[in-house]
Amino acid sequence: MSNDVVLEVKNLKTHFISSKGIAKAVDGVDFVLRKGETLGIVGESGCGKSMTSLSILRLIPSPPGKIVDGEVLLNGKNLVTMPNAELRKIRGNRISMIFQEPMTSLNPVIPVGEQIAEALRLHQGLSKKAAWAKSVEMIGLVGIPSPEKRAKQEPFQLSGGMRQRVMIAMALACTPEVLIADEPTTALDVTIQAQILEIMKDLQRKIGMGIIFITHDLGVVAEMCDQVAVMYAGQIVEHQNTAELFKNPLHPYTQGLIGSLPKLYEDQDELQIIEGTVPSPYDYPEGCRFAERCPFARSICSEKQPDLIQYDEESKVRCWKYTNEWQVSLTKELVTT
């Protein structure tokens, strides 16, 4: 099984250092991505999911951002310590990215075909002509009609959906092993989102890349992902396969998140809510970072931080509830009362 692993992230820590202090945006993240698999990273704004994805290719704005600890291994090679020149051969070639804002992620003054072709010339050593031909082919592959004409156009002449297709074409031009998609459909309308998700699934079947899919939308996760990592306050709090996660969420935060979604197929009077707000990344509490908002919290939760423990063969959770200590503290409390 471990032979299939393409990307492994170990204890990744990305901090932002400023006059306000140290913001621990990513604070010890671990996961593995296997060949052809889609791993979803979900969480609410500020949980560190985007910063995790940017850290993989070392694209965080620096300063003030800095990867302070951890490893990102692509087939065993550590990207965190790699020299820039070597890393550049991986970016856009073996690992590529698509971003949330199709409107601003393409260069406004360069024809889209050229923006795709330049990566092909760079990484595959194609001639100008061959790269252009491949670029047109890619534009056709992502379902844009009359690709020859579109390739010569500049981004402002394309709709939002088409721009995101161009981004996908660009990212997949060099048949990468890993595609990192950071909220790729968040800025799009639902019918366009459906088109884009379909294209991504289709191309994954053809190319076989692993996808890291960053999103805040649990519905999209359910559609797209095999595995899901739920992030809260810079850490992964739960990691399960998708079907299991929605059937049997382990972490109280995941439970709350799923409960707070309005259901499309049933009527509810009131939505379940999570009380309170996310703690500041400058000043995380000592114990469990969710303890303050957690309906199950006991004294141990605010005292010591839980580890991400193996719940069963395929699931991990960061919660005291699933440990022996929990039982101990429960009996202790019973004894004292």
């Binding site: 709709s159 989102q193 459906a194 359910a222 197929y265």
Partner: peptide
């Protein structure tokens, strides 16, 4: 087109062509 968390309840997706 709405992505739903419960995949068992999902109906057959109608994917519209093109943009608005």
């Amino acid at each position: 087109a709405i992505p739903v968390t419960d995949q068992t309840k999902r109906e057959d997706r109608i994917i519209l062509k093109g943009d608005v």
